[in-house]
Design a protein around this nucleic acid. Structure first.
Lengths: 350, 350
DNA sequence: GCTCACACCGCAAACGATTGCGGTGATGGA
DNA sequence: TCCATCACCGCAATCGTTTGCGGTGTGAGC
């Protein structure tokens, strides 16, 4: 713990002025001596600087961010918008964002938007009213102009998890991920497959589905539209989608859900239909959340590090704030094969 | 979206001075006219105030929080410490905190501590360096003096989820919750029961276990110490604990895990031992996370609203910041009975 | 017509940090 | 010995907001 402020109860926090008085120098000298900028620090004699730094350490001096922000116009705070923090995919991404930001001396403020168009705008505005230096959007929608509007206003911006045409984003390579899932089911000989395709406004679902269908097309099987159904990204959404898919004739022998929680819902619907997961119906998810490997029938899923995704998004945004260009990035996914598609895989990966 | 700042690209954000000049009055008048404090606002003529307010709205004026914070010494930011935001229990609590804080015009900054003693202090200090107005601790440990130290420094403080002797906290009534679980298993006739008791430094595990054991004691059965094992609060922790419990003689016919994820691990261990959940071994969890009802064998769990807990914690802290006393609160839990203890409950609650 | 009260508003000083500019002293060179 | 140079440091303005104090003008009351 910092030695200060408050040796016992409430002592007024040390300021530059406090230190200046004790050191017998002007506050500007203290400011320079304590500057993170090496070039600025050289403006004060080494001995003086050392004395000031020792004093600052002793008093537990912490610069008042309000003072700094007011003077420099930078708050050193990043704003993050996510659909729901209770979704472990998003909270993992956020942990990555926060880890990278805090090692760079930034703090982050996160807000839930519930994927609601109106709330997204309101939350973004609230963050901007707080004078965040930049925004990371984890809830970009293809049917919204929010990201474009923010960019037009000159606000430093990075998308994470979902992509949008002309914006900088950090995502998994969702087309490739979908393709991996498709190729896996093709190789297992599944001819009739269904897709719980996610929300139509999310690039994740769109691209994962596209990659999956492309794999099948290239294998010579065109998946009929009826076998591709939209779904919410949660258990109930997956369940509902699967109930529709399982009612089709011929019944699909495998279902790809573009999200693990939807996949869990799919598994539930399969069981409720009196079928066995991994035997009667293979199931593939996406994201490989920790729980996937722990399920009674472990779930085959497309894996990529959400934490790293968050980290990259944050460093990209920080780079933009430093004037660097900012390039989009697609992290390569890998398929984690488990019992939900290959029963014998069970002992190998738990 | 706010009409400003930036009609097209980057227009300098409106300040009090901007408005003052346009309105032909002094900035102090603008400040008063725009004050949230009704009494202050009365200091300016109604007509003038209306004109200023209209102008502010038109320009999309947003007060610069750095200026306000510098002048008033209050940042209107709350700090929140949690073990892990990827734990849905904590992220739900945090959502509640943020909801209450943001309706009160506060923002929140959250930090992960991983329940690490050293990291807790460092993160708390980082938050205080940001000049948060108060702290909500979701990771209080019985073997740490952090909360006491912070309180001694006069820092407004509320604990959430876990309790500590002399501190203000908002929790579920964990003793009662444990008791509900115990009485349920007693009523079902289980004589030999085991407990995955959680981490020894967390009041949650301690009190839930105590309540559970009390219920058995009052029913005339003293649970032997060997049947109470510490465990981490995750799937792997529950699995490990269950493996030890299932190896005991006589083998327990029911296991109470003080956390749902640990309970999921218990269920895994039960299956791996070739036993059936809900038939050979009953399992009870705690918190009733959404997934509990969605499991292949739905999990009986002690329910309480984590979201409300977070909300209450935030409002309690805000009350303290307004000078109110601040009272601890224990939310009443309820038992959600499902198939993991009563097989026939399955159709009733999915 | 004069005084008093009061409503309304401006003045200026803070809060804490940063930074361009200039001043002082010492040092080096010729 | 004198001047130019440079290292070091101080001065003061500035960011945007809040607020105690005081000044001006209006109206009422007698």
């Amino acid at each position: 713990m910092a030695p200060q402020p408050g040796g016992g109860s409430a002592r007024p926090a040390a300021t530059l002025a406090t230190i200046a008085e004790l050191a017998g120098v002007h506050v500007s000298t203290v400011s320079r001596a304590l500057s993170p900028d090496e070039a600025v620090r050289r403006g004060v004699a080494a001995a003086t600087a050392a004395q000031i730094q020792a004093l600052a350490a002793e008093l537990g001096y912490q610069p008042n961010p309000a003072g700094t922000a007011l003077r420099t116009g930078r708050s050193h705070v990043l704003g993050v918008l996510v659909p729901r923090l209770t979704d472990i995919v998003l909270s993992t991404i956020y942990e990555g964002i926060d880890a990278a930001a805090s090692t760079a001396g930034y703090h982050t403020v996160v807000a839930n938007t519930g994927d609601d168009l109106d709330l997204q705008r309101r939350r973004a505005d609230a963050l901007l009213a707080r004078r965040v230096d930049g925004l990371i959007l984890g809830d970009a929608r293809t049917d919204s102009t929010l990201a474009a509007d923010l960019a037009a206003r000159g606000i430093p911006l990075v998308l994470v998890s979902r992509r949008l045409p002309r914006r900088v984003s950090v995502t998994t390579d969702d087309v490739l991920g979908g393709r991996l899932a498709g190729e896996h089911l093709v190789a297992l000989g599944h001819r009739h497959v269904g897709v719980a395709a996610g929300e139509p406004y999310a690039s994740t679902g769109i691209e994962r589905t596209a990659g999956f269908l492309a794999a099948y097309r290239e294998a010579g099987t065109v998946v009929d539209d009826r076998y591709v159904v939209a779904s919410r990204f949660d258990v109930a959404g997956g369940r509902a989608a699967a109930e529709r898919l399982l009612a089709l004739h011929p019944r699909p022998t495998a279902i790809f859900a573009v999200n693990d929680f939807a996949a869990i819902g799919v598994m539930g619907a399969v069981r409720d239909a009196g079928l066995r997961v991994g035997e009667d119906v293979a199931v593939v998810g996406y994201n490989d959340v920790p729980l996937a490997a722990e399920l009674p029938v472990p779930l085959t899923s497309v894996h990529a590090s959400m934490f790293d995704m968050g980290r990259h998004a944050a460093t990209t945004l920080l780079g933009i704030l430093d004037g660097k260009p900012g390039r989009s990035r697609r992290l390569p996914p890998q398929l984690a094969v488990r019992a939900s598609t290959v029963l014998s895989a069970r002992p190998a990966d738990r």
